[in-house]
């Protein structure tokens, strides 16, 4: 066996394995004797040795950069989600890794002032009006901002009106990124959003993010309609009584809104109300 090992059989791979201590003893001594008699091979070995680096030290630096707080929070979310999703069955079928979009740092800052303004309006108008009843809104050009739910819808509409096609063009749409995002949003919201919410025919799903309304986490799922019109599906827990879907217009955008199980939901965008309602019906069945 040893004798077979001449210059031609000592490849770079073998030399690297030799340097890495990965060769079995027999092969190792064969390489060593080949090296003794072959200057070219020794040069080759020296070249490959020049490709060595202080690997561990160099990469220790990267370890120190790990965003531990975020990673730990994400892990906690994953553990929680797993606890909720996977009962005691030992099923071999893995739940799909849900699609979730990347969060959008750029837009978030817009939200808070808009929110604050709306909450202020809510308080003022709310106190003045003594809080209206929860009757369905009539579609009208200027909808009221009397209740907390109305203030919420107004805030979302104001925010949505700032969106353009370009706002959503930077969203990362790969499945794993989207998956992690949806899970984060589900976790924050306390409501599982199945990945089917990202698969509404006619709407191109972009991303999900968590915003805040008052102290409540607000989920915003962003879509593009006809590759042109931004559409948002938003959910917040306002503990409204269950309400069937109805339409209204705010900030020049069509809205369909309903509530279920304490959550208030709305779909908003600058598109024909009939189509908006079709999309809403699909989403309503999935959440």
């Amino acid at each position: 066996m040893t004798s077979e090992l001449n210059d031609q059989t000592v490849t770079d791979e073998t030399l690297v394995a030799y340097l890495d201590g990965e060769l079995p003893p027999g092969e190792r001594s064969s390489v060593e004797s080949a090296l003794e008699s072959d200057e070219e091979l020794r040069e080759r070995l020296a070249l490959l040795d020049d490709g060595a680096r202080p690997w561990k030290d160099a990469f220790a630096g990267l370890l120190e950069q790990a965003p531990m707080e975020k990673l730990e929070a994400d892990l906690a979310a994953a553990i929680q989600q797993q606890a909720e999703q996977a009962p005691t069955s030992g099923s071999a079928d893995l739940p799909p890794i849900i699609k979730v979009p990347a969060n959008d740092h750029g837009n978030r800052r817009w939200w808070r002032p808009a929110m604050a303004a709306c909450v202020a309006v809510t308080l003022l108008v709310g106190f003045a009006a003594g809080y209206g009843t929860n009757e369905a809104q009539n579609p009208e050009v200027v909808a009221a901002v009397g209740t907390e739910a109305e203030a919420w819808r107004q805030a979302v509409a104001d925010y949505q009106a700032l969106y353009t096609r370009e706002t959503l063009s930077v969203a990362l749409t790969d499945p794993v990124v989207q998956s992690a995002g949806l899970q984060r949003v589900s976790k924050s919201l306390g409501l599982t959003l199945p990945d089917s919410v990202s698969e509404v025919g006619g709407l191109d799903y972009k991303r999900a993010q968590i915003l805040k309304f008052g102290s409540q986490p607000l989920a915003q799922l962003a879509y593009l309609y006809k590759d042109e019109v931004p559409v948002a599906f938003c959910i917040v827990r306002l503990d409204e009584t269950d309400r069937a879907a109805s339409n209204e217009v705010r900030s020049g955008l069509n809205i369909v809104h309903w509530s279920k199980g304490g959550y208030s939901l709305m779909l908003v965008g600058d598109l024909p109300v009939e189509e908006l309602n079709d999309f809403a019906r699909e989403l309503e069945g999935r959440v």
Binding site: L71, Q82, I97
Partner: peptide, 18 residues
Amino acid sequence: EETAGDLVQATCLRALQK
């Protein structure tokens, strides 16, 4: 960095599932 964070989370979730 962002993709890495999401990849870690997806990996943790998959590991927990399996």
